[in-house]
Design a protein around this nucleic acid. Structure first.
Length: 430
RNA sequence: GGAGAGAUGGCUGAGUGGCUGAAAGCGCACCCCUGCUAAGGGUGUAUAGGUUUAACCCUAUCGAGGGUUCGAAUCCCUCUCUCUCCGCCA
């Protein structure tokens, strides 16, 4: 959520910065476009309502005093007439206007940071570096590797739940678990994160705190009979751990890592990545979350990014680092780096981690604050990123570690997590 | 699932219609006192919004939402959550 005071005091500069996301972010029908007038209206009504309330309170106080001393208060009582009623009506109007304004505010995307490159879509993203030695020989797609090794069962997933679900078997299931464990250990023991385990269901308020709601409800799985949803990322519960709290400066930075399953309806991606496990309705992810002082946001983003990178490098997976342009930036992010892993079967890099700074955007929405030097509360900055998406990491391992004999080597760093296994080989059918 | 009790500031905890944004204690901050320490004394200590150069001031908030009333932390209704007992259960 953008700062409502900024909106009023600095509208022109804000609009300029916001327009980096594209004209549609600031045109007349955009949330931004209507916010200014709604704010004006809201404040006007509020001022009016408050002055009537003040009058009501003043006279009521006198009545109370007179009654206490046994004086006659009928003049005051009479003069009040329907003031109380009118005050309530005005207050209701003011509240309605405030709610409309607040709702609009919630639909305005974050303002891109000045360091975010200009651009319309993913084609304008800025490649920062590439790492590793991508292989360019013929490699089967991970779904073929997975099926021939008998470790990914797509039919079973479809039967049980529908399209975009799968079942992992044997070494595949073990590899999923090994990856989770490996990533968590690294982040908790080496990178300095406090591990947390959180619910996979979040209520509406929590979903609003991190920005999934109100705008993206159709991307979420909603529970029947409850105002709650399956989480699309651990970012939601982990960040909201501090919802409506005023933190002491000495508590920062707060760094958490968490493993959760993630659930996404993929409403807007029909037809994309329909084969394989790149885009599933349910997937595992180890997430990194930091809460920091606003002035430290970008430094923290660099640090968190290096932690995600450390997983890729210790698995020796070739990747490239991309700085997202303004047009490709997510709703809540002020700046995002994507890590893309090399997939030889597709001869391209595919996103495996997205590391973002949200500035104070989520802090304002979720009511997470920290006291500044003067002791005044201000919204914290939040940073998060995947470290990493587990399913996609498995895809990358299957393809990058695939051997001509059809087997897949286990990366050295994972072998101890796989009970000493050094390769997954096709099952010998009797 | 059944029965009952409860939700007040950073914490504990008073408060059943009026001067209570809220007693008291604890904690915290600053000051005083005191060879040091300990003990003691004093002052201050919620959040958001509006107005303002600032102070003052005004409004809202005692789990959430609605209602009664000139006036609600206090009365009524609905919801959420917590606790206790019983039942069930991985």
């Amino acid at each position: 959520m953008i700062d409502r005071k900024e909106l009023r005091v600095n509208a022109a500069a804000m609009e300029q910065a916001l327009s980096k996301r594209g004209e549609k972010a600031v045109n007349a029908s955009s949330a931004w476009g209507v916010a200014l007038s709604l704010d004006e209206k809201q404040r006007l009504l509020k001022t009016e309502a408050e002055s009537l309330q003040a009058e009501r309170n003043r006279v009521s106080k006198i009545i109370g005093q007179k009654k206490a001393t046994g004086e006659d208060a009928s003049a005051e009582l009479h003069s009040m007439g329907d003031v109380g009623k009118r005050a309530k009506v005005l207050d209701a109007e003011a509240k309605e206007a405030e709610a409309a304004f607040a709702m609009t505010l919630l639909e305005i995307p974050n303002i891109p940071h000045a360091s975010v490159p200009e651009g319309k879509d993913e084609n304008d993203n800025e490649e920062i570096r590439v790492w590793g030695n991508p292989r360019h020989d013929e490699v089967p797609a991970h779904w073929d590797i997975g099926e021939s090794l008998g470790i990914i069962d797509f039919d079973a997933g479809t039967k049980l739940a529908g399209s975009r679900f799968s079942v992992l078997r044997g070494a595949g299931a073990r590899l999923e678990r090994a990856l989770i464990q490996f990533m968590l250990d690294k982040h908790a023991d080496v990178n300095g994160y406090d591990e947390v385990w959180v619910p996979a269901i979040a209520n509406r308020k929590t979903m609003t705190g991190t920005g999934q709601l109100p705008k993206f409800e159709e991307d979420l799985y909603a529970l029947t009979g409850e105002d709650a949803f399956l989480i699309p990322t651990a970012e939601v519960p982990v960040t909201n751990l501090y919802q409506d709290m005023i933190l002491d400066a000495s508590q920062l930075p707060i760094k958490h890592c968490a493993y959760t399953a993630c659930f996404r309806r993929e409403a807007g991606s029909a037809g994309r990545d329909t084969r394989g496990i790149i885009r599933q309705h349910q997937f595992d992810k180890v997430e990194l979350v930091q809460l920091v002082q606003p002035e430290n946001a970008l430094t923290a983003l660099d640090e968190l990014l290096s932690h995600a990178v450390s997983i890729l490098e210790s698995l020796n997976l070739p990747y490239r680092l991309v700085n997202l342009c303004a047009g490709d930036l997510g709703f809540s992010a002020e700046k995002t780096f994507d890590l893309e892993v090399w997939l030889p079967s597709q001869n391209t890099y595919r996103e495996i981690s997205s590391c973002s700074s949200f500035g104070q955007f989520q802090g304002r929405r979720a009511g997470i604050r920290v006291r500044d030097d003067q002791g005044k509360p201000q919204a914290v900055a939040t940073i998060n990123g995947s470290g990493l998406a587990v399913g996609r990491t498995m895809v990358a391992i299957l393809e990058n570690y695939w051997q001509k004999d059809g087997s897949v080597k286990i990366p050295e760093a994972l072998q101890s997590y796989m009970g000493g296994m050094t390769a997954i080989t096709p099952k010998v059918t009797a």
